[in-house]
Each structure stands twice: as structure tokens, then as C-alpha cells.
Simulated scan of single mutants.
Amino acid sequence: MSIQVTTIRPGAVLADVLPASSAGRARARDAVLVLGGAALTGVAAQIAVPVPGSPVPVTGQTFAALLVGASMGARRGFLSLALYVVAGVAGMPWFSETQSGASFPSFGYILGMLIAATVVGALARRGGDRGVFRTAGTMAAGMAIIYGVGVPYLALATGMTAGEALSAGLVPFLIGDGLKAALAMGALPAAWKLIGGRD
């Protein structure tokens, strides 16, 4: 009886483990992954809890966007979130609380997610999703980008001061984001260990 060993090439992300026997099949796989990543983000955005005193709800959208980037890499992560953003702006009601368009105060967070998924995907290709502490750093970088875009956008869209925007658009979400990061810290390295690609 032989044991099959999974060989993972350097610079791979989890999505690269999915088999594709030809260039055409690889393109089809990538298209399905991009569509799936956009859909996952849209579904996760509907898990929304209003925050008193803030126009920004707590959602599963942030975690989904970062997970898409980490598991798919920069290019597919960017395309997934770009599809999510473009379809939502065009009228697909899959932003948080079934919103669409671009005329709401929390739209900056969505733009931040697009950038964050790309950066997190690039970090994952450099091993940023392989261990608990590296995954924590990767998720923290992604969340910093989301807030770095979302909070200033919130201030501009609502006329809040910088302090008010931080109080309404950052502080209430820190505990939840810590829990999301902890979930990723367990899930991503565990997935690599399961497929035999832990370094």
C-alpha cells in the first residue's frame, strides 16, 4: 500500500492545490473561484448587526474578503472583490443590509476590502497564511488597510471629525475583528496542515 504525498510548490496559495490538468481547465477553475469568492463576500455581507451610533454595521463581509484574498492569492482575490464591488455598484443588492450603489457612508470599507484582499493574497503567496503568528500578521495588515480607507471615507461622507469617525467606524469593531483574526489563525494553518503543505 502506498501513501500519496501532496507536493506544494513554493509560493502556492490554497486555491492552487485544486487540480487543473490543462491551461483551459485552470482558467475555468479560476473563473469559478473568482465568482465563488464574490458570492461568498456577498452572502457574508448579509450577516449584519447594526451598531448603535454608527452607520457601519458589524458584518461577515470583512472576514470573507480577507479569506478570499488569503486562499486565492492576489490576482484572483482582486478579481473576486472587483466583481463584488462592480456588481454591487451596478445594482446587485449584496452589500451589507442588501444595499447597492456607492452612495452610503460605509462604501469606503468595501473599497478597502478590494485593496486588502489583494495585499493579503500577496502576503499569503509569501507564506503569510502558513503559521498562526504569520496568519495573525497577515490578517492584521488586511484589517488595517480596510480601516485606513473606510474610516477617512466615513468622515468625508458624513462630515464627522477624525475622532468621531474613529469612534463610530473603528473602535466598536476591534473585538469582533480580533475574533475574526483568531478564526483565520486557526483555519488557514490547519488547512495547510491537512493537505500536507505546512512548512
Rank of each mutant, 00 (worst) to 15 (best):
T59I: 10
A45M: 06
A182S: 13
G128A: 04
P93S: 01
F133G: 08
G37F: 07
G91P: 09
G197P: 10
M72W: 10
E164N: 12
A44N: 07
Y109P: 02
D177L: 08
A65E: 05
L67S: 11
T6A: 12
K180L: 06
P172N: 05
S71D: 00
V13D: 02
A65Y: 06
G37D: 00
S100E: 01
R76Y: 09
G11H: 04
A65Q: 00
L154A: 06
G36L: 01
A136D: 03
W94P: 03
A122W: 11
G176E: 04
T161G: 14
R126K: 14
S103I: 09
G69V: 05
P189F: 13
S80N: 01
L156Y: 14
A157I: 05
D30T: 01
M160C: 03
V13P: 06
S96H: 13
L40Y: 05
A157F: 06
V5C: 01
S2K: 14
A23E: 12
F95P: 06
D16H: 13
M185C: 09
G137R: 03
E97Y: 12
V171P: 04
I47A: 13
G53E: 09
E97P: 08
I110V: 15
Y109L: 04
A23I: 14
A190P: 11
R134I: 04
F104M: 07
S167C: 06
A162V: 15
I145C: 15
F133Q: 10
M113C: 06
R130N: 10
A26P: 05
A136L: 14
A70T: 09
V85R: 08
Y147K: 08
L166A: 12
V17D: 06
T161F: 11
L179C: 15
P105K: 02
L114P: 08
F107K: 02
Y153Q: 02
G178V: 14
D30G: 02
V132Q: 04
D199H: 15
V56M: 09
L170C: 09
L174K: 07
V89D: 05
L67G: 05
G60R: 03
R75Q: 11
A141G: 08
F173H: 09
I146V: 15
V132K: 04
A39T: 11
A70S: 14
L81S: 01
G108K: 01
A90N: 09
Y153M: 01
M139K: 09
F104I: 02
D16R: 09
R125L: 03
E164K: 13
G36H: 02
I8C: 14
A181T: 12
V58K: 01
G112V: 04
L174I: 13
A12M: 03
G77M: 06
V151M: 05
D30F: 12
A70E: 05
G101D: 00
Y153V: 01
A102C: 02
S22Y: 15
K180N: 02
L79S: 02
G108D: 01
R27M: 10
Y153W: 15
L188I: 04
G69Y: 11
A70N: 08
A190R: 11
I175D: 04
M1P: 14
T62S: 03
A20I: 02
A38C: 12
A187Q: 10
T98R: 12
V49K: 08
A155P: 06
M143H: 15
F104Y: 15
